[in-house]
Amino acid sequence: MSDPIRLQSFITLSEIDKSYRMGGQTVPIFQDLSLTIEQGEFVAVMGPSGSGKSTILNMLGGIDRPDRGKLTIGNSQLHRMGEGALTAWRAQHVGIVFQFYNLLPMLTAAQNVEIPLLLKPLNARSRRERIRTVLDLVGIGDRAHHLPSQLSGGQQQRVGIARALISDPQLLLCDEPTGDLDRKSATEIMEMLQFLNKELGKTIVMVTHDPESTRYADRTLFLNKGVFESREVAA
């Protein structure tokens, strides 16, 4: 590691247990799960449906929490943080990109991107500038005042990415970001994620079903029934 002070990786999951209660029964998802991800890495996670991919992303984003084990990201020990602290942490350190974009339908592209900024003490001018910069970055500056319903899937996902980027987080979590897109749009989105990773140094963890998409990642993990399989391949 180039940073002598940091003895740990950027992201460390160690000995994580996670289970859900379903109708009085406890269904284990993970037992003793451990994983490290370095700063600036682009990691893809594949695996059959129900294997726990989203659950991992949710824990990394602080919107779900492990039952046991340690989860640290940067200097934050997520397993020790309460809901309020996690929310504040999330607002600053993570951007989440969803499969179905999850834009608010009554807001324009620019307004959707602006939501995370409502939490920040910014004046109108610098706020506008930031939104512009980010929308231009993802290539839809000319669609700023369109409603989601007036945008294609690929364009909506760009807005989703812009929203995830607006607070300038180090970590991007993407849950099947191209799962709902055609090949061409999917490729564009993947190229953009690669750009964010290579040029802006964002650490990206991406869940995908699409083997094509994994080509953009530094590393692909295969999850099966809550366990990482050994066919880990370096890109």
Partner: peptide
Amino acid sequence: VLKSIGLS
């Protein structure tokens, strides 16, 4: 969604 974006 709003919560996941960081709204308390």
